[in-house]
């Protein structure tokens, strides 16, 4: 079985589902002939034709809006937005239409679409190409927000997202598109949505994260282990709806929690997780919840991007802080 990178796993899942279900259509800028700027859709147009793998005009509102129309007609639209920095015109369509079509028609119409976009920093990209604004989407009722953190989770979660009868924002951490390779059997097996994945079990501190930051977090857990601190690592994977039960269960065991995300700190998803920990676990916490996040600044151009993003040392430091409290 060949090993594949995360972006290749995305391609594998798209191809699998297009083969299995002819109602799946892919659309976006440069997704056809060019196979996507990151090659996530490479080869799909050759296999499935120009109508099912459509190079659209350069118009993000249109891409999202026509996906709503396609989905309402029973197609499973999988639009790609080239970079998250260009996703904002789609919010009108996602918030006002995709996420509420089922609700406002009392189930008469539905919107099974998966809007994919690469996101996050760390690849020395131009301005507007490096932000992590997943919390904007996580605030929208009726939506799912899914972020894979490995090739196998990209494959399994994307399959699940396409098969899901409701709209999903599928954000792909582009910094790790080609970081590691894994054996991913192309068996069509989906992974469950709406649940966290516990990547490493531990007893002393729970570190909650998602996307590319799982890699820094796992390295931090290794370092902590060397110092005798046992960290449990949770990959949230589906940010909305949030599987708080897994996090609460872990924190009930460890009594400590560090939340790690690349996105700006204020009103990031870490704030929601910390608030729920305060609501449900305050009296059993052994230390205040720590957040390791991007600063509340504009995402800098790439000379400073590594300063902006949390790194392993910051995660280790935060975990140690929680240990020192009690």
């Amino acid at each position: 079985m060949p090993e594949v990178s995360l972006v290749e796993a995305v391609n594998l899942a798209l191809a699998h589902e297009m083969q299995a279900d002819e109602s799946v259509v892919v659309l976006g800028e440069d997704v056809g002939v060019n196979g996507g700027v990151f090659r996530a859709t490479a080869g799909l147009q050759e296999r499935f034709g120009k109508e099912r793998v459509m190079d659209t005009p350069l118009a993000e509102t249109l891409i999202a809006g026509m996906s709503v129309g396609l989905a309402a007609q029973g197609f499973k639209a999988v639009p790609e937005i080239q970079f998250m920095g260009f996703i904002y015109p789609t919010i009108d369509q996602i918030l006002n239409h995709a996420a509420r079509l089922r609700y406002r028609t009392r189930g008469r119409m539905t919107c099974p679409m998966v809007l994919r976009a690469p996101f996050g920093g760390g690849i020395h990209a131009p301005e507007h190409h490096s932000e992590s604004t997943e919390a904007i989407f996580a605030h929208i009722p009726g939506l799912r927000v899914v972020i894979p953190s490995s090739p196998s989770r990209a494959y399994g979660l994307l399959l699940a997202a396409i098969r899901d009868p409701d709209p999903v924002i599928f954000l792909e951490p582009k910094r790790i598109y080609r970081l590691v390779k894994q054996q991913v059997p192309d068996d069509g097996e989906a992974l469950p949505l709406d649940v966290c994945f516990t990547l490493r079990e531990g007893a002393d501190v729970t570190v909650v994260t998602w996307g590319a930051m799982t890699h820094e977090t796992m390295m931090a857990a290794d370092q902590l282990a060397e110092e005798g601190i046992s960290a449990e690592v949770i990959d949230v994977a589906t940010l909305k709806p949030l599987d708080m039960d897994t996090i609460l269960e872990s924190v009930a065991k460890t009594g400590r929690c560090v939340i790690v995300h690349e996105a700006a700190r204020t009103a990031g998803m870490g704030a929601e997780i910390a608030a729920q920990l305060a609501e449900h676990s305050l009296l059993t916490l052994l230390a205040p919840v720590q957040r390791v996040a991007g600063y509340d600044t504009v995402m800098p151009l790439y000379r400073l991007e590594n300063e902006y993003m949390p790194d392993t040392a910051r995660i280790v430091e935060a975990a140690k802080n929680t240990m020192e409290m009690s």
Partner: peptide, 30 residues
């Protein structure tokens, strides 16, 4: 908006012009 009659007709669209891309998607589906 759960019309008993025209099941595939879109519900009223309040945000101006946001339903035009939907029409394009519906036409593309056809």
């Amino acid at each position: 908006m759960d019309y008993a009659g025209p099941r595939e007709d879109f519900p009223i669209c309040v945000p101006i012009a946001t339903h035009l891309p939907h029409a394009v998607g519906v036409a593309y589906a056809m």
